[in-house]
């Protein structure tokens, strides 16, 4: 039954807050590998994950952020970032994800509401 559901993975944590960001990404890739429709949402401190030029290896972490560039190969094309949360955190310019849609909060939440299963990290 679950295979027909559209899945939204909502990132609210920073890149290195526990392993939330890594686990959210891993789950998205697993769903996508089984051809289940999955979308990524970034809000609150999760928008920090979308900053370009992060260097996890500089503090001894694996560069999982680089995998964002491969989301297209997994057919994960629906990526949404909350505009207000980006502005509040002064995030501008290049992003770590390709083809993301930056949406005002009203549209962001309406888009999220279209999904059947919502998982937050």
């Amino acid at each position: 039954m679950i295979s027909n559901n559209r899945i939204a993975i909502v990132n609210t944590a920073t890149t290195f807050d526990d392993f939330k960001a890594k686990e959210a990404l891993d789950l998205a890739l697993i769903f996508a590998s089984y051809e289940m429709p999955v979308a990524l949402f970034f809000m609150a401190d999760g928008v920090f994950q979308t900053k370009a030029n992060q260097n996890p290896e500089g503090i001894g972490n694996k560069d999982f952020i680089a995998t964002f560039k491969a989301l297209g190969f997994y057919d994960i094309d629906d990526i949404y970032i909350c505009q207000e949360d980006m502005v509040e955190r002064m995030i501008e310019g290049e992003l770590s994800v390709d083809g993301a849609e930056i949406l005002p909060r009203t549209q962001f939440k309406q888009t999220l509401n279209n999904y059947d299963l919502v998982l937050t990290f």
Binding site: T14, T15, F16, K51, N53, Q54, N55, G58, I59, S96
Partner: peptide
């Protein structure tokens, strides 16, 4: 500095 750079904050 290392923690700033790891997060792309420069």
């Amino acid at each position: 500095q290392d923690h700033i750079q790891a997060r792309g904050l420069t």
